[in-house]
Amino acid sequence: MSQVSHALPTRPSVSLAPTQAVTLRINGQDHLLQIAPWTTLLDALREYLDLTGTKKGCDHGQCGACTVLINGKRINSCLSLAVMQQGEEITTIEGLGTEEQLHPLQQAFIDHDAFQCGYCTPGQICSAVGLISEGRARTEDEVRELMSGNLCRCGAYTNILNAVMEVVRNELKTGS
């Protein structure tokens, strides 16, 4: 038998960093928050702004469920602190479309049954929006590869590919 001790070898200090004011521009609207500096962008959205469309699947940058767009570029919002995104244009799934007026990718996901439980879906869609604006993906293999930062445990990959390809093809048609 042996004794082990969990956590810090010494007692924790009781001092905490104070909260601070942070302004985030999300889906075209400014939001003023008073939060601890270590609050992630993901938690700021979900816990402080009730923008729960952005999902948490790991909190460690390993699953893509938390994907949002910063100035049009896709990032994992769990890997960014909210304070780092002041002054940037943040777009979340709520900013892409509504149930009455769906974004073409949202419509394509429904048409192709590109989800089951729906938990990875907002991240997949935001990621696909970012992917299309990157202009790098034209073929199925490219889309598969460049959508591989977004895990789907339900295994909807075949239909996700088809949904994204439909929109990619339309973009290529109208864009060129």
């Binding site: 729960t52 948490k56 799934i93 892409l96 479309g97 949202q106 429904i110 879906t121």
Partner: peptide
């Protein structure tokens, strides 16, 4: 038949257990 809960899921409107603030 397309999922009737599809629009809620693709827009982020569907609320999961940790999302009732």
């Amino acid at each position: 038949t397309s999922r009737v809960d599809g629009p809620a899921k693709v827009t982020g409107a569907a609320k999961y257990a940790a999302e009732f603030n």
